[in-house]
Design a protein around this nucleic acid. Structure first.
Lengths: 220, 220
DNA sequence: TAATATTTTCATAAATTTGTCACCTCATAT
DNA sequence: ATATGAGGTGACAAATTTATGAAAATATTA
């Protein structure tokens, strides 16, 4: 597993490198975007850890360029939380982000998670004749498209990605509506109702977990 | 889940403690490194939240000592002013960081994430053909789902997590119903009855401890 | 801007869960 | 064997929780 660490601070590179060594990753380093692009072109890199704040070529621009060359998973490092919001707005295709300060252990955990995720890129979910196309943001039952509103689609996606796990209303609100939603818990119920109606014969896949929330359940 | 909070500021400990209580974590406190080490030695602690800036023995040194005794996951708290690269250089194996000021909610989320990563969270209990899926809030006997009401599920979960320990009615009431329940002791009996009925062939796992309470007993 | 679609709130209905009680059964000590 | 106290059980009213439809508020699109 070959990993490229891009950060202008040598101490940080050093620490990450040490932890990666423990995982038997082969580590390449770059101290700015230009260097990083060079290494990307000339090596078979599996994953990149990329700092945003860098001289010469910043992380954003570097990321953009990298994605034009090869589709390598990237974990972004940002110094401030505010930067993260900006990040989300741009959505340039990073696979994860970390806000400084973070622990090297967590970075390793995220690297592993991203590698696992990207090895088998799931862009479709199928159960019987129900098909969810995450890329196209569309849902089909058989050959018929199921018309869902954006919220319904997000809700269904989140359910599907957490198959067989009971999700509380709070959890759903914070994940789908965002931490800054201050509306009523019960809004969920209405969306569930509509989603169920739209899911026709699959409406029962969304199970209510009384006094708790809802669950997308596939019986095995 | 037992958590140790180490910070010299009582107010911060208090706030964290309150939020942890909501998650049913058992909270221990220490106001400096020395105290922390003492608690670590004498208790089965699952995770530690450790401030870096402390009198007597600072967070880094404490972390180092802790890791030499037991491998307990640690989340470090640092004030804004400490530079990330400096932190990173000193780090000796923390599992996550949080910078002050932080939201208690985020701390809880990180605690959960670390517990999950370090496999401290058990999400399934199995005994013969009886299976309790904590994530899905469901119980199975063989392949059949056992339909339990919320209280029954909580009751069973609590029993299972206290296997072979006799639990008094008061204990059950305060843990499951909450400290603010002022109803009748015997309410428990009715719920036990229903739970037993639902557990079918496993009904006898819930043993009556006369003049005391009940016990979830697995004979070995 | 108007028209349309989506999201949210809210009141009410429906369903489920709960707590209590009275009566029954059982274990235990005398 | 019997008295006594503790637990077991069924019934049911009360409380809680969810489902639903309709209307109001927002956002989106033409």
């Amino acid at each position: 597993m070959k990993i490229l660490i891009v950060d202008d601070e040598p101490l940080i590179r050093e620490v990450i490198k040490e932890y990666c060594a423990l995982e038997n990753y082969c580590v390449l380093e770059a101290e700015n975007g230009i260097e990083a692009l060079d290494k990307v072109k000339n090596n078979d890199i599996d994953i990149i850890v990329l700092d945003i704040m860098m001289p010469k070529l910043d992380g954003f621009s570097t990321l953009k360029e990298i994605k034009q060359i090869k589709n390598i998973p990237v974990i972004l490092l940002s110094a401030r939380k505010e930067e993260f919001d900006k990040l989300m707005g741009f959505d340039l295709g990073s696979d994860d982000y970390m806000t400084k300060p973070f622990s090297p252990k967590e970075l390793i955990a995220r690297i592993k998670a991203v590698l696992k995720r990207t090895n088998k890129v799931v862009d479709e979910y199928v159960y019987k004749t129900l098909r969810i196309d995450f890329k196209g943001h569309t849902v089909y039952i058989g050959n018929d498209e199921v018309k869902l509103t954006p919220k319904e689609f997000e809700l269904l996606s989140y359910f599907v990605k957490n198959e067989n796990i009971a999700l509380s209303r709070e959890q759903l609100l914070s994940k789908i509506w965002g931490y800054d939603f201050f509306g009523d818990d019960r809004t969920i119920d209405t969306h569930i109702k509509m989603l169920r109606n739209n899911l026709k014969q699959y409406r029962d896949l969304i199970v209510t977990v009384r006094s708790m929330g809802y669950k997308f359940e596939i019986k095995k």
